[in-house]
Computed example of a mutant assay.
Amino acid sequence: MARFSELRLGPLETVPVSVVAQPGVTLMSLVADALGGRSQGVHPTWRRALRSAVPEGAEAVLRPLFAREYSMVPDCLTPTAPLWETDLSVQLERLAEVPSEVLLRELEADFEGRVPRQWQGVVDRPKAFIHAYAAILGAVWEAFGPMWARAGSLLARETERVGVAVVSDALPLVLTGLGPKIRFSGQTLSVPDPHPETFERGARRVVLVPIVSGRGASVFSFDRSDAVWFGYPVPGLDTLWTAQEADPARDPLTLVVGSLRAGILRELVRPCTMGSLASALNCTPATVTYHCAQLETAGLLTRERRGQHVMARRTASGGALVNLLSG
């Protein structure tokens, strides 16, 4: 059952609102989806591209941040502070130079002196973690940067739309249409959160951050002293994905193995469970299982049961076929 944190805004006519096209929020949404197992609705084509762009072992490095027991990114590791700094290269340079003692101090404070087990490797080698983490974020943004640039007109249009809504007392219309995961009722905004809390806005500014990642994007911070902010899918996002999709009739891999099997092979840039494949390709687990069986018979992938899950991975032949027909 989904759980939600709540932000109590107070009377909307008194709420100061800004819009910031903050690329760091988009970056964290992309990382959460492609590498952290937290779905943001990123298009499968881009999810595969981002997974291919990062260093080997990136998911293991990021595991503490997205652990199911407690999902948390320390403030010093977020490329969103200060929120008003929209040059991501500056943010990433600053992040790579975070002193070890700053990270350790934040972990100690965030977990009230009882740092969870999944963070122990970070505590033991904080500087190595910071360098690996910064390299992963840099690789993701290097791959996605052209898409962010293409989204410039969408972001400009959204900034104008919200500005008009604020001056014309139509802010409730904006807040009720912020994507499938964000709810607004009365004076309260609710966002999905595995560890829900209730926050009062007080006198803080509200900052809306349009995200260029996926239709299910939801990233937020309600505990800053200067502002509360939340990210949501920029309207018109689907037009970016549509423009990027290849024509299936001209895709050599699709012509050889079919569209769904081509999608499976491309998704398996890293081993996946049947469930994650089905989710990524928007089909049922039974359908994925059938097509994986055919690909396994052809020697293009292997399957192995691990506990309650069946893991699929490309064989050398499967990888060679994808590379040959995707040039």
Rank of each mutant, 00 (worst) to 15 (best):
P99M: 05
Q118L: 09
A132C: 00
P116Q: 04
A53C: 02
T80Y: 06
G37P: 01
A81L: 15
L92Y: 04
A81R: 15
V102A: 14
P64Y: 09
Y133K: 09
V123I: 05
G113Y: 09
V123F: 07
A53Q: 01
D124C: 00
S100T: 06
A67E: 10
E106K: 09
V115Y: 10
L95V: 02
C76A: 11
S71F: 02
L83K: 10
A109W: 11
A109Q: 14
Q118F: 15
R47M: 12
E93D: 14
P116F: 13
D75C: 01
V102I: 14
R38F: 08
R114P: 00
E108V: 07
C76T: 06
A60Q: 11
Q40D: 06
L92M: 06
Q40R: 15
S89D: 14
P99V: 07
L88W: 10
A132S: 13
E93C: 02
P79L: 10
E97L: 13
A67G: 14
A58W: 05
V42C: 04
V54C: 01
R38Q: 13
E97F: 10
L92P: 04
R51M: 11
G37C: 03
S100W: 08
E56K: 00
R38W: 11
L50F: 05
K127C: 04
G57C: 03
R38M: 04
A109P: 05
L83R: 14
Y133R: 07
V61T: 13
R105L: 04
L77N: 01
G113D: 06
A60W: 06
V73C: 06
L65D: 08
S89N: 04
L107H: 08
E108Y: 13
A81G: 11
L88R: 02
D110E: 15
A67N: 14
P82F: 09
V115T: 13
T45H: 03
V102M: 09
H131C: 01
R114K: 03
Q40A: 09
R114E: 15
T78K: 14
V122F: 07
P82T: 04
P99F: 12
C76V: 13
L83D: 09
E93P: 00
A109M: 13
E97C: 08
R68Y: 05
D124I: 03
S89P: 00
E56P: 00
V73G: 02
D75V: 07
E108T: 13
S100I: 05
L62K: 00
F129G: 01
P44D: 03
Q120Y: 12
T86I: 13
Q120T: 14
T80R: 10
E97I: 01
L107N: 06
